[in-house]
Computed example of a mutant assay.
Amino acid sequence: MNIQTSLQSVLIVGVIHLGIVAQVNAQEWTLTPQSYVGFEVKSMGFSTVKGKFEQVQSSMSFDSAAPQNASARFVMQVNSLSLSKPSLKNMILGEDLFYAEKYPTATFNSHEFLALGNYQYKIKGDLTLRGITRPVILDASLEANPFDPQLMNVEATTMVKRSDFGMKKAFGGIGEKVNIEVSGQWQRK
């Protein structure tokens, strides 16, 4: 074995070791029940309707020292949606918008965490609504809670167009652009 082959072997073993260490140091997290996963959309062009998914299954694998190995997943039960304007619930869950009877869940699966510094991240992933999957980017802040090491504060937002997910355009005065938000805390499993 020559010196170059020996160095290559050492480098390969080192890279494999770093990958294993990164996976070992990654912590598993789930959102606290008090966290908000929902959206807001303009209604009639001037008032805002807010919706919160009350039943969300969430998981995140994250190590701030190796964010490139992180992953996150959300599964929202569409029928668990509570609204700031309850009178709109049947319309929003109906066939023209969420179509909850046919599509009972909405999902987000991340592909990539990009660290921007100062606890800021771009989280690239796929959002699936009504059986239609589109790429989205969450602008996120993930920061250790200063009072409890078992918690991590989270704020994440993105904007989507309803029609990109097969929802009826210009329906009932509900706006086309929807702001999606996650805020609260991840808790270490």
Rank of each mutant, 00 (worst) to 15 (best):
E95F: 01
T105R: 04
K89I: 08
G51E: 05
F108M: 08
S35P: 08
L31P: 03
E95Q: 08
S9E: 08
G117T: 05
R73E: 11
M76T: 08
M91R: 05
I16L: 15
F74R: 00
G38I: 01
E40K: 02
D63S: 08
F113R: 09
N90M: 01
P33M: 08
S71K: 03
S87P: 01
T48C: 07
K42H: 01
F74V: 02
D96G: 01
P33Y: 05
Q55W: 03
P86D: 13
P86T: 05
F98G: 12
L81R: 03
V13M: 07
A65C: 05
Q34K: 11
A106I: 15
F108T: 02
T32L: 13
F53W: 00
P67V: 03
S58R: 12
G38F: 01
K42F: 02
M76Y: 09
A106K: 02
Y99N: 15
M76E: 07
P104N: 10
A65W: 08
R73F: 06
V10R: 13
A100K: 03
L88M: 12
S61R: 13
Q55M: 08
G51N: 05
G45F: 01
M44R: 00
M44A: 01
K50E: 02
D96I: 00
Q55T: 11
N109D: 15
A70W: 08
V15Y: 04
S87I: 07
G38M: 03
S110Q: 11
K85P: 00
S47F: 06
T107Q: 03
Q57T: 10
F46M: 00
S82F: 04
S43L: 07
N25H: 10
A70F: 10
N69G: 04
S80Q: 12
M91C: 03
V75G: 03
T48S: 12
S84M: 05
L11S: 13
E40V: 01
L81E: 12
N90I: 02
N25S: 06
E101D: 15
A115W: 09
S84W: 02
T32M: 11
M76G: 07
L88A: 03
A115L: 09
L116D: 14
V41E: 00
A66I: 03
K102W: 07
V56S: 00
E40N: 02
M60Y: 08
T32K: 05
S87Q: 13
G19M: 15
D96Q: 06
G51L: 06
Q23G: 14
A66E: 14
N69A: 03
V56E: 08
S59G: 10
A26L: 07
Q27Y: 00
F39P: 00
V56Y: 09
G45D: 04
S110C: 10
E101K: 09
P104A: 11
E112T: 11
